[in-house]
Design a protein around this nucleic acid. Structure first.
Lengths: 228, 228, 228, 228
DNA sequence: GATGAATGAGTATTCATTCAT
DNA sequence: GATGAATGAATACTCATTCAT
């Protein structure tokens, strides 16, 4: 019901507010966006096979026919959902600004920003889990995604370079390794939240434990990089 | 694809050996086990909604009817798969033996063993991802699983206690925090392998990078625990 | 076997007339009605559990899928059949007109009309028998049916009132008692026709005995009401 | 759960009490009887198509195999249930003794006894309804049933003869007509109890209304027979 | 006689997709 | 662009019955 992508979608919000409808023009774009919003929610919620085209259509203000009209089918809709989700995430990552900090502070800050970022977009984490179950076959085929630049890696690369120059960081790990460490921690909390809660009785996303966990990821990566 | 249950199933192997199978009237335990083997593979491969009862039956030497005879339905079969998978993993974890090492070595060894362990059971990691997509509703309802003890935590608890006593480890993280750090890294490599490969061009499970990654998880947790 | 709904369905007849049916896109009401016609026949013929959705669909010009599209499932279809059947019967009962007769004639006439009425709708009697086997659980849950007015009772109530005023009728039976007497006789002939025939060698619906039986129900209720 | 057939089965009760098991002898008879008891309950409860062989077996102390061993199949079991039920009813009817009364008293008494009789055996009424849904095809094929004498008819025939001789009864109805009147009323109360309750809000089997109804059937048949 | 395992044909239901208007 | 009706292939599940021991 309530929009899934809201935290991400500055663009999709105005559809409700704003102008009194230019006769018939951006309707197409608006309809597409609405379908994508609902589909994102449904696919993230139930997986690709578990999501229902009927259900997606029903939660939309248009009809099932439009899904086929705009996207061609369930699979293409799913790919479109993935593409939009990845693009939004990447565009947010563009705004990272940690390069004014010293390398140690910068890497800690980057970890924390990634932490916040993933916590704000659980449905994106779920989509990624789902896509991994499918062995990433859809994003592999998507031209839009396979060529998508990765801002975090660039930022991280420059921080590491400065750290190495200053003799602060170990040099047997590269940017992708560090990104893996950060991502592992930040993704796992959300992706495996439910089984963890049942098996260990602790909710990794519990608000009370949030600060502790946030400090932990920073400590972790800094300790690792600066260990003698 | 690659045999799912083999690495785990000393018990299930004899089905291949022994007698040449009198046409009917095999035996209950063998039939059950065979269905579970195939179902584990199928559910891990395609998810709960994506797996097909017909397909599972077809890959079995018995019929679909037997799935309902022994398990009652698709969902119960899925739960039985989860239960067996968790029990096997737990039983392997029972065999952990790192307590003769000094705390730092012990925690590093534990991280490495967890690393090996998860790498050996990718289908288990997949099942866990899938169950998280379903918000762990099935294991939450399973009496067999919600009460399952967790050997790793006990072992880790004792190591930390020794480390604290010796003033070696920071004391603002508990056993579950440390387990989370280790699990995050070890699970993520397998769970997110495919999207990572497509997006970053690196296979986190690549054999050539294995030792590097294995050292990394040890370094990570030790550095974190011993950081001043 | 013999057309079920015909005697009742002025509305459903046009389906046979009109246009020669553009292949697809018939119209909703017609499709619904056709399914209900066939389902009425099948459920009356074989009972709820004995009727087959496949068989109903096969006797229809549409497909099984439409049954689920319009009704949701076998049980809801059965309820829809009951609802339509009861509504039709009630609507026919609305047309009763015996109040211009003196009370004795009126009650006899009412009995005879009920007799004719039930004889004309054997499939309705069968549906009622079937629903009683199910302890009326379906009509109990149907809002459409539990609130359905009962014209016969009103008519009967007014006749009895006149008879009591005139000192013609005994006053220790109420309208529902009288309706029970009439219904028992009229329903039993049809509902128990087959076992009666086998066990006693007499067909209670034999055309030759019809007038005799019709007079009997009138005599019965009049004699009862007017007995000193 | 609570035994259906109890009111009927003086013979089947001792199975639990009595002798300490003659090594293995009447076991066959006892097993047969137990199956029939459970099957009677199940068929009466759910109809022929609705009853489940598995369910019948499960409610038995033996296994499904025995149903096939003793009866051959579901249909034959159903026929056996009908045969036993009819035989028991007939045998109870043998005990009717109203011939010492004057014709009017006798016919009233007969009606009341029939009333009591049917009220005591609702599961028999249900079986008869069910068999009528199947157009009596099973009892028609049963040699045991098609030749079964009907004690009530004989008794009734003798009472009517006396009444005619005495000029008390109308002579345009025969014994079977009178039996039909009585049966209609007595069967209808039980057979159509549930729909009647839902549609008219009155339970025809309500204990408080029992005496009223019992008097009614007597009044009814006497008034009818003696009407001038 | 008795038992649990096994079976195949059936049976209700669902789903992505398309058509006519 | 938009809509409700329609479809066929799948999909989960059930049932009476039989076999091996």
């Amino acid at each position: 019901m309530s929009s899934v992508a809201q935290p991400l979608s500055d663009e999709s919000v105005p559809s409700a507010a704003a102008v009194p409808d230019p006769p018939r023009q951006r309707d197409a774009e608006r309809t597409r966006a609405e379908i994508l919003d609902v589909a994102t929610q449904e696919f993230a919620d139930r997986g690709y096979a578990g999501a229902r085209v009927d259900e997606i259509a029903a939660k939309t203000s248009t009809t099932k026919r439009m899904i086929y009209y705009y996207f061609g089918g369930k699979e293409q809709l799913y790919v479109a959902v993935l593409e939009r989700a990845y693009k939004r995430i990447r565009s947010l990552e563009q705004q990272l600004d940690v390069e004014h900090l010293d390398p140690v502070q910068a890497v800690r800050e980057l970890a924390c920003l990634t932490f916040d970022h993933h916590e704000a977009h659980p449905e994106f984490i779920r989509l990624v889990s789902i896509e991994n179950i499918h062995r990433a076959e859809h994003i592999a085929r998507s031209e839009a995604l396979s060529g998508l630049a990765n801002p975090v890696l660039d930022v991280l690369g420059r921080i590491l370079a400065r750290g190495w120059d200053a003799g602060l960081f170990r040099d047997d790990v590269d940017a992708l390794d560090v990104h893996q460490v950060i991502s592992s921690f930040c993704v796992f909390r959300t992706a495996n939240r439910h089984t963890w809660r049942v098996l260990f009785g602790r909710d990794m996303l519990d608000a009370e434990r949030r600060e502790h966990q946030r400090r932990m990821v920073g400590d972790l990566v800094v300790a690792h990089l600066t260990a003698r």
